[in-house]
Design a protein around this nucleic acid. Structure first.
Length: 752
DNA sequence: ATACATACC
DNA sequence: TACTGGTATGTAT
C-alpha cells in the first residue's frame, strides 16, 4: 500500500536529511506562516517520531527558505528596495505558483540534505509567484515583515542593553527564580491525554475502507485533521485542502461530522471522569487530569493507571490516545506528544530530572509559545528552555513583566497543577468566510445571518451582553475589528443586527471575504433580576426625599447591602466629604415596584436609539478596499471612536424625549436621575445603569478636562506574578466598573 | 474602552 | 476556485 503512494523513498530521504540537519529547525520563520497562517492542529496531534520528523522537515524547508529570502529582502531594503524587487521580477518567470509550490515542497524536501545553497533563485520565484497569485500570501508576507521589524527593534535594544550594567537586573531575576522554585509543586500527578488524529480516526473507524490510505477531514478550503498516511506527504491540520491535494493527489477528503465527534468525545470524557471527576477538557480530543487522588486511593503507579485510561478509551471507542504524565500541566502537555500516536510518556517528579528534560527542549514545544514568539526568542539566540534560563536577564530587560513571568516559569519547568479550575465564558461569536462581497445589501444579509446564529448560541446559555464587535476580513485578508460597548444588554438577533449594522455601515464600502459578530461583557439574563437595583442605591432614612448614593464597597455583597439599605450609608463618606451637589439631588427609591415599565422601556429605547443612531452618522472611516491605501493611513482613520460618541446635540434630544415621554399623569416616579434629573418609574438595575451610562457618556464628553479620577481606571502594568484566572463571576467585576464610572462622573462634576 | 496580534485546538 | 472558526488574552493606545 505504501508503495502505491511512493512513500518509501521519500521517507528515507527525509529521515536521512533530518539526521543530518536536526538543527535546521533553528532557522525559523515565515513560510510556515505563509502556508499555515493560523496555527496548528485542530485535533492537535503530531505523530510518532518518523512522521513527526517529516512534518518538521517540511516546516523546516518552508521556514528556512523564506527566512533567507526575507532577510535578503530586508537587507537590500536598506540599499534599494525598488531595484531589488525589480530584479526579482525580471529574474522570475510566471510559472503557475501552484505548480512551483508543489515542486518545491515535494522536490526540495526529498533532497533537502544536499540543497544548502541551491535555492535562492527558486525561493525568490516561489515568493514572487505566490505573491502575485495569492492575496493570502501577500498578506502573510506583510505580517511577516512587521514581525521582522519588531525583531530588529528589539535587537537594537538588545545591543544597548548588552553594554549596560546588568548586575541589578541579575539580582532581580535571581530572586524571581528563587520565588518560582519556592512555588514549584511536584507533588501532583498530572496527565495530559490527547486523542490521536481524532477526527480522522473517528472517520476511519466508521469507514474501514479509508484505513491505510491518506485521508483528511475537511474540505478543499481547509483541513481539520489528517491521518498518519496523509501526514507522510506533508499534509497537516490547518492546511487548505487544495494544497494538500497537490502534496498528495490521492488524498481522500472526508467532510467534517462535528456532531459525531462530539458524541465520541462524550464517551471519552466519561472515562476521564472515572479517574478524575474534575478533569478539564481543552477540546473534544484533549484533556488534563489530576490523578493524584486516584493514585492515593488505589495505590497504583501513574503509568499503569494511564495505560488503563487509554485502554478504557480504546475499549469504548476503538480509538487510540496518547498521554503525558508529569508534575504539572505544562510538562504533561509536552510529554503527551513524545510517544504519539498511541503511546505515553512519564516524566519523573524530580526536579533534577525535569530540569534535564527541558534543558534541550525547543521552546516551541511549550504551549503558549507560537511561531512569532519563537522567532523573537530565536533572534535572541534562545532556542531551548535551557537557553531561556541562561538568558533570563535579557528576557527580563526586553519583555513585558507578564511575558517575563511566563517565560521564567517555562525556563524552570514550573507550571500549574490546577486542573479543576472552572471556566466561564467571556464572549461568544460567530464568523463566516464567503466569496468576497462588496454590495452593502449582501453584507447586511450576511450580518443578519450571523445575528440569527449568534442569537441562537446565546440563547443556549441564556446569555446577554453589552459589548458588540464586528470582525472584517477584507478580500486582501487584512483583518479589522470594530467594537462598541452599548448602554444596555442585548441578546436578540434584532438587536445584534440593529447595533451591528451601525458599525458595519460606518465602515462601508467594504469588500469582504469574512464577517464576524461577537458579543462580550456577558452576563446571565437572570442577573438583572438577581442583582437588583438596591445594590447601587442607598437611602437616607431621615430625608423625606431620599438620597441617592453610590455604593462601591457593598456592590458585591448582598447581605451587607441588605442591611445598610435603609440607612444613610456610606462608610466611605468620610473620604468623600467633598461630595458634589449631584449627590445631594433627591432621588426617590420608594416602592421598588416596576410600574409603568412599558412606558419606561419605551422611553429608554428611544433615548438609546437617539444616542446610538446619532453616532453612526458621524462615523465615516472607510476600511480600504484596495491595497493602494496603506495600513497606516487606515490606522489614523480608526481613531474616530471619540467622534462617534460625541453627543453634540444629544442633550437637546434627550430633554425632548423627557418631555414627550414623561407624561405627568401616568408615571409614578420611583427614582430620578442624579445626572440629568430625569424621573423614572422603573427600578431595575439595568434601566438605571443604562440611563446612567448614557448620561455619563453625554456629560463626560461635554467636559473635556480630565480629572484625577481617571487614574482610577488606568491599568497597572506590573501585575500579578502568576496570571491565574481568578474566575470571578462576571457581574462582580462589571458592577465595579460601573460604579467606578459613576464615581468618575461625580468627581468630575465636583471639580467643575 | 478599543484595536490588533498571538495563541490554542 | 479554493487559506477556517471559536475563544482567550496580551499589548498598545
Amino acid at each position: 500500500m505504501e508503495n502505491k503512494y511512493e512513500t518509501d523513498t521519500l521517507d528515507l530521504d527525509i529521515k536521512d536529511s533530518l539526521l543530518q540537519e536536526t538543527q535546521g529547525l533553528d532557522d525559523l520563520s515565515a513560510l510556515a506562516d505563509l502556508c499555515n497562517s493560523t496555527n496548528s492542529d485542530f485535533s492537535g496531534d503530531s505523530e510518532k517520531n518518523v512522521t513527526k520528523q517529516m512534518d518538521n522537515e517540511f516546516e523546516m524547508f518552508e521556514r528556512t527558505t523564506l527566512e533567507e529570502s526575507y532577510t535578503e529582502e530586508q537587507n537590500s531594503k536598506v540599499v534599494s528596495l525598488d531595484s531589488l524587487s525589480g530584479s526579482i521580477e525580471k529574474e522570475v518567470k510566471n510559472d503557475k505558483d501552484i505548480e512551483s509550490l508543489r515542486n518545491r515542497i515535494s522536490g526540495l524536501a526529498a533532497t533537502k540534505a544536499g540543497m544548502q545553497g541551491v535555492d535562492k533563485e527558486k525561493v525568490n520565484r516561489l515568493i514572487y509567484e505566490s505573491s502575485k497569485g495569492s492575496a493570502f500570501f501577500q498578506n502573510e508576507k506583510k505580517k511577516d515583515e512587521t514581525i521582522s521589524e519588531k525583531i530588529n527593534e528589539m535587537l537594537q535594544k538588545y545591543e544597548a542593553i548588552k553594554k549596560s550594567d546588568l548586575l541589578r537586573d541579575s539580582i532581580i531575576v535571581e530572586s524571581k527564580i528563587k520565588e518560582l522554585e519556592q512555588l514549584r509543586d511536584i507533588t501532583q500527578t498530572i496527565v495530559h491525554i490527547d486523542m490521536d488524529a481524532f477526527f480522522a480516526a473517528v472517520e476511519e473507524r466508521d469507514n474501514p475502507t479509508l484505513r491505510g490510505k491518506p485521508m483528511a477531514v475537511g474540505s478543499l478550503s481547509m483541513l481539520s485533521t489528517a491521518n498518519y498516511e496523509a501526514r507522510k506527504f506533508g499534509v497537516r491540520s490547518a492546511m487548505p485542502g487544495f494544497i494538500a491535494k497537490k502534496l498528495c493527489p490521492l488524498l481522500i477528503l472526508v467532510p467534517c461530522h462535528f456532531e459525531k465527534y462530539t458524541e465520541v468525545s462524550k464517551e471519552v470524557q466519561k472515562v476521564f471522569a472515572q479517574y478524575d471527576p474534575q478533569f478539564s477538557a481543552m477540546s473534544l480530543d484533549e484533556a488534563y487530569l489530576n490523578i493524584t487522588d486516584y493514585l492515593d486511593r488505589t495505590k497504583q503507579q501513574p503509568a499503569e493507571v494511564v495505560q488503563k485510561i487509554r485502554n478504557d478509551i480504546f475499549y469504548k471507542t476503538q480509538l487510540t490516545a496518547s498521554a503525558g504524565i508529569a508534575p504539572n500541566k505544562l510538562l504533561a502537555k509536552i510529554c503527551s506528544d513524545i510517544n504519539k500516536p498511541n503511546g505515553q510518556y512519564q516524566l519523573e517528579s524530580n526536579r533534577k530530572v525535569l530540569m534535564d528534560f527541558i534543558k534541550n527542549l525547543s521552546i516551541r514545544k511549550i504551549s503558549g509559545i507560537g511561531r512569532v514568539t519563537e522567532r523573537i526568542l530565536n533572534a535572541l539566540e534562545i532556542k531551548t528552555c535551557g537557553d531561556l534560563l541562561e538568558k533570563l536577564v535579557i528576557v527580563y530587560k526586553l519583555f513585558t513583566p507578564t511575558s517575563f513571568n511566563f517565560l521564567a516559569q517555562v525556563a524552570l519547568g514550573v507550571g500549574s497543577t490546577d486542573v479543576a479550575m472552572e471556566w466561564n465564558r467571556k464572549s461568544m461569536s460567530v464568523e463566516r468566510t464567503f466569496p468576497p462581497l462588496h454590495k452593502s445589501q449582501d453584507l447586511c444579509k450576511k450580518l443578519r445571518e450571523l445575528a440569527d446564529l449568534l442569537e441562537n448560541d446565546l440563547a443556549k446559555e441564556n446569555l446577554e451582553g453589552r459589548t458588540i464587535s464586528l470582525k472584517f476580513k477584507l478580500k486582501s485578508f487584512e483583518l479589522f475589528t470594530r467594537a462598541k460597548t452599548l448602554p444596555k444588554y442585548i441578546h436578540s438577533a434584532d438587536d445584534l443586527y440593529k447595533y451591528g449594522i451601525q458599525i458595519l455601515e460606518a465602515e462601508m464600502p467594504l469588500d469582504l471575504r469574512l464577517l464576524g459578530l461577537r458579543l462580550a461583557a456577558l452576563r446571565d439574563r437572570n442577573d438583572e433580576l438577581k442583582y437588583g437595583v438596591k445594590k447601587y442605591f442607598l437611602v437616607k432614612e431621615e430625608n423625606p426625599k431620599k438620597k441617592l448614593r453610590l455604593d462601591m464597597q457593598n456592590s458585591e455583597n448582598d447581605a451587607l447591602q441588605e442591611s445598610t439599605f435603609n440607612t444613610l450609608l456610606p462608610s466611605d463618606s468620610s473620604e468623600n466629604t467633598d461630595t458634589p451637589d449631584s449627590l445631594e439631588r433627591p432621588t426617590c427609591l420608594e416602592g421598588l415596584t416596576d410600574m409603568n415599565q412599558i412606558q419606561m422601556y419605551r422611553h429608554m429605547d428611544q433615548c438609546l436609539d437617539q444616542f446610538t443612531s446619532g453616532s453612526s452618522k458621524l462615523a465615516s472611516s472607510n476600511i480600504k478596499m484596495k491595497a493602494n491605501t496603506s495600513h497606516k493611513d487606515n490606522l489614523s482613520e480608526h481613531k474616530l471612536t471619540d467622534k462617534i460618541l460625541q453627543p453634540k446635540d444629544s442633550q437637546l434630544s434627550t430633554s425632548e424625549i423627557i418631555e414627550t415621554s414623561n407624561n405627568e399623569d401616568s408615571a409614578i416616579i420611583h427614582w430620578e436621575c442624579p445626572i440629568c434629573g430625569q424621573k423614572f418609574s422603573d427600578s431595575s438595575e439595568l434601566r438605571i445603569n443604562t440611563h446612567a451610562n448614557v448620561c455619563l457618556n453625554m456629560n463626560s464628553k461635554k467636559k473635556k478636562n480630565k480629572t484625577s479620577s481617571s487614574s482610577l481606571l488606568k491599568r497597572t502594568t506590573h501585575s500579578s506574578i502568576h496570571k491565574k484566572n481568578p474566575n470571578r463571576r462576571k457581574s462582580t467585576s462589571k458592577s465595579r466598573i460601573k460604579n467606578l464610572s459613576l464615581l468618575d462622573f461625580f468627581e468630575k462634576n465636583s471639580n467643575s
